[in-house]
């Protein structure tokens, strides 16, 4: 694929290597805090689109931790939106080949 046209983010993430840990999400959003804050910064700020509006409830957020690049931007940008973040297990998560 050439870069002359812009590539959707999902395709970009496909080029990054992960050691998946599907069963153990390391990112969680406290639904109540997210609703209370009402700012929805998480939806935009994440470079990997980990946070999406929940399909059935636009006021709730749905997380796809398996896309996470572990940059921590969400923690800094929107602590009030209830991001709960721990490190993935050893060796799991994003695994850069170039970095």
């Amino acid at each position: 694929m050439s870069n002359d046209e812009s590539m959707p983010l999902t395709d970009k993430l496909y080029r990054t290597r992960y050691e998946p840990d599907a069963a153990h999400p390391h990112v969680r959003v406290d639904a109540e805090a997210y609703r209370r804050a009402g700012t929805k910064k998480l939806l935009k700020i994440c470079p990997a689109e980990v946070y999406k509006p929940a399909p059935n409830d636009p006021e709730a957020v749905q997380t796809s931790h398996e896309n996470c690049l572990e940059c921590g931007t969400c923690r800094q940008a929107a602590p009030e939106e209830g991001v709960e973040w721990t490190m993935p297990d050893g060796g799991k998560g994003v695994k850069y080949r170039y970095g």
Partner: peptide, 9 residues
Amino acid sequence: ELLEYSAHM
């Protein structure tokens, strides 16, 4: 060709 996409703080 895109080889890797990354983010860091």
